[in-house]
């Protein structure tokens, strides 16, 4: 069984937001909402500055509070560890929205909760998620962490990395190379 996740090279990311707009068109995300976004962190005093730019989204956690708190079972862990929401089961109670430390979920205007799916429909066809496939800097990698030979596994062996809010204990599956 695969365990999907992403590795993102912050050294290469320029924060252009191509990933955001590619997700919007691929998944027809309605105007005013988005499943992924950019974070910019600058530390220091001019001109001695350090800047990290990150593309962020649902971390498809191993220990996902959004799944545990869902009263209807709509939020669930699907094949490959992808955390999904079954629209027809969702009652829009927003418990999962509140539980997510990454603020990755929103209520779709059609009433159900929506978020990043790792483009499950593309992954099934053997393609990368839309955000990964469009990135002009090639800073995003998608793959199987259960396979030690996969590019994502190898990158984590070779480079320094961090995850976001690891202290929440959710066991996120998106890693940022620094």
């Amino acid at each position: 069984m695969a365990r999907y996740g992403m590795v993102i090279d912050t050294k290469k990311c320029v924060g252009c937001q191509d990933c955001v707009v590619a997700c919007k068109t691929e998944n027809q995300v309605p105007h005013g909402y988005s499943r992924d976004w950019l974070a910019y962190e600058t530390i220091g005093k001019f001109p001695k500055l350090n800047m990290e730019i990150r593309t962020e989204r649902c971390n498809h956690c191993d220990n996902p509070p959004c799944v545990y708190c869902c009263p209807t079972g709509a939020s669930h862990i699907s094949d490959g560890g992808i955390v999904l929401v079954e629209h027809d089961k969702c009652i829009g109670c927003k418990a999962c929205v509140a539980s997510c430390p990454y603020d990755a979920r929103f209520v779709h205007p059609e009433g159900y909760v929506s978020k990043c799916t790792f483009c499950e429909h593309r992954v099934k066809e053997g393609k990368d998620p839309a955000c990964v496939s469009v990135c002009p800097t090639h800073c995003m990698y998608f793959g199987d962490f259960d396979d030690p030979e996969s590019e994502v596994s190898k990158l984590l062996q070779e480079r320094k990395y961090h995850a976001i809010i690891p202290e929440a204990g959710t066991k996120p599956h998106i890693y940022y190379l620094t």
Binding site: K11, K12, V14, C16, P136, T137, H138
Partner: peptide
């Protein structure tokens, strides 16, 4: 300011140079 100035091929190659 490559990266903000988003000339596609230039930015793609800029990323390669960084790598």
């Amino acid at each position: 300011h490559l990266g903000e100035n988003m000339h596609n091929s230039q930015v793609q190659e800029f990323s390669e140079a960084i790598a």
